[in-house]
Amino acid sequence: MEASIALKNVSKHFKKKYVLSNLTFGIEKGSTFAIIGRNGAGKSTFLRILSTLLKADEGILYINGNDMSKSLKDVNKVIGYLPDHDIHDPWLTGLENLKIRANYLGISESEFDSITKPLIEEFEMEDSINNYPVTYSRGIKRRLDIIQTLMGDSEIIILDEPLLGLDYSIRTVLCKYLLRQKGKKTVVIASNEFTEIQTMADRWIVLHDGGIRFDGTLEKMLTHVKMPFIGNLEIKKDGEELDNILANAKNIKEVRDFGNFVQIVTNDFEDFYKITRKIKEENITSISGNSSNIEEFLNLLLSDEGF
């Protein structure tokens, strides 16, 4: 399959510290590519290099076969980049910000409505688009910036923590939008929201210490790393009963005690379920659980040197 983005020995350092070291790989056209990693792993630097806002110290970046160190022509038609920070003027209305962006992108006034209106509606910004972003909540600000990024209809969409501050319903809207682009646009997304990445990404990498620690699909990862189940229990009483249950329970990997809130890490859901059956119902305020916690995954991945 044709590569939309290709990197050859790309490195970046700030002062003497290497943030990215010798990265070589390609991203297929029309695929959704996810990047995960701990804070400071180099995700944002990597995306800024991909979006041509930052120059790699070594190596070559190819976008659609063009060496980006030589050719920047029409890059706006190719790349739409959403940084991890705000990209709007808080003292201009949301609509004015979109008009500015449209001017930069070369979108004419006659095209403006037909391009922005569907996006404003899809991201439920109709009520706030004429207000100033200083009055927006974190999530609404993010929605405005997402619209700004998507309105260019670029071939490659690069999103740095796009889900930051978004509520469940808008997360779903963005996920649906990105799923619709599968096969048409190349999407590169950096996020620590594992559940959403699982839904969307065809392939993903884990960045750690400037290098790629994992590169592949979810299936490939699961064959190497068995994901534990993390059960969350909120209890009413002092926990003496729970302590006894946990002391006698099997297959518990770890217990994290936060007072009335306890996190129990087991091999799978079955083990957690067995524990909850032993606790009196009236003592439980809430139960929740997640089998794919990104921190757990990173812990497993990064502790396994042979992986």
Partner: peptide, 8 residues
């Protein structure tokens, strides 16, 4: 970045 990310 609002300006730079449009390809200028």
């Amino acid at each position: 970045d609002q300006c730079r990310s449009t390809g200028f």
